[in-house]
């Protein structure tokens, strides 16, 4: 079971959380201008890397807040998502 660090509650077992998938998938700024391919990509296509993935979790059984972490999908090693470090990734 993963041990996940909630930024507000600290280290908790995975069962307290729900997974939210890839982070930073924003609603298109001008959806009416998207063609079918771009809209399909927005709806259905997400990153599926072997390696680091910035992803969302929600602490459903705790503070119920959403947050992002960086996890290695090969090793499950997790680290906080710190915006100032994003450039180096």
């Amino acid at each position: 079971m993963l041990l996940i660090r909630c930024p507000w509650c600290g280290d908790r077992d995975e069962v307290e959380f729900r997974y939210g998938g890839q982070a930073d998938v924003d609603y298109p700024a001008d959806p009416e201008r998207l063609d079918d391919t771009a809209w399909g990509n927005y709806l259905f296509v997400r990153a599926n890397p072997l390696g680091t993935l910035t992803e969302r979790w929600v602490h459903t059984a705790g503070c119920r807040r959403w947050f992002s972490v960086v996890r290695d999908t090969a090793t499950n090693e997790m680290s906080p998502d710190i915006p100032s470090r994003r450039e180096s990734r």
């Binding site: 995975e14 729900r18 997974y19 992803e55 999908t73 090793t75 499950n76």
Partner: peptide, 10 residues
Amino acid sequence: AYNGYAQRGS
């Protein structure tokens, strides 16, 4: 629930 290539789960 999460993505992963580790061939192990929780």
